[in-house]
């Protein structure tokens, strides 16, 4: 792929990543989010946070399976969009759902396991987003930077639990996301284990 083609692809992906947000905002303004638009918006932003997280985690396996190394250069953008949607999801909860009732928000974070774990995964995303630039990689050094960014595996598990513990009774959707995450993490475990073994004769 030529540099020109790649930068076109990157621009197209950037615009595409804004699509879900545009769709939700349009839905909100045109009264198309149903009877409880605040809930629909908050949940929609949460759904997309989780989807972007899984897409970010899909980059490495896809690159390995396809041999297309340029895929790796799209990972940072997907990761930063994960944080962007997580921030909007959190903002929607704090602003629209709770209207800055810090007392109730604190109680939620402390008392409700699904909110505690969601909040934890959001907090853990902050240092990753803050160090998603070349200067930070240089400053931290590749090894330290990489260990720090492995926290994303814990974040993904927390995020799926956040969804799972939130639903009332029908766990179909959380289960689909959990299975996708298990596949993406399972491939990594498999590759690590295989690398550790001596090659068959």
């Amino acid at each position: 792929m030529s540099p020109r083609q790649f930068s076109l692809l990157k621009t197209a992906l950037f615009v595409l990543c804004l699509g879900p947000l545009a769709n939700l905002v349009y839905g909100l303004l045109s009264d198309a989010l149903g009877a409880n638009p605040i809930e629909a918006l908050t949940r929609g932003l949460g759904d997309w946070t989780l989807r972007f997280l899984l897409m970010t985690l899909a980059v490495t396996p896809l690159r390995r399976l396809s041999g297309r190394n340029w895929l790796l250069k799209l990972r940072r953008m997907l990761g930063l969009f994960t944080f962007f949607y997580a921030l909007l999801h959190f903002t929607s909860y704090v602003w629209l759902d709770q209207f800055f009732d810090w007392g109730d928000i604190w109680k939620d974070i402390v008392k409700r396991p699904f909110i505690s774990i969601g909040f934890a995964s959001f907090l853990l995303l902050v240092p990753l987003a803050a160090t998603s630039n070349n200067a930070a990689i240089k400053r931290l050094g590749g090894r330290l930077w990489q260990s720090l960014h492995r926290v994303v595996y814990a974040i993904a598990v927390f995020a799926v639990l956040h969804f799972w513990w939130m639903v009332k009774i029908d766990i179909t959707q959380p289960a689909i996301h959990a299975a996708t995450l298990a596949l993406l993490l399972g491939m990594r475990v498999y590759w690590v284990l295989r690398r550790g073994q001596p090659k068959a004769a």
Partner: peptide, 19 residues
Amino acid sequence: VDHPRWSQSRERRIGEFFK
């Protein structure tokens, strides 16, 4: 008396912004 997973102290009346 809260639901074990969420608070029952407030509610959103459908169509209203503030709980």
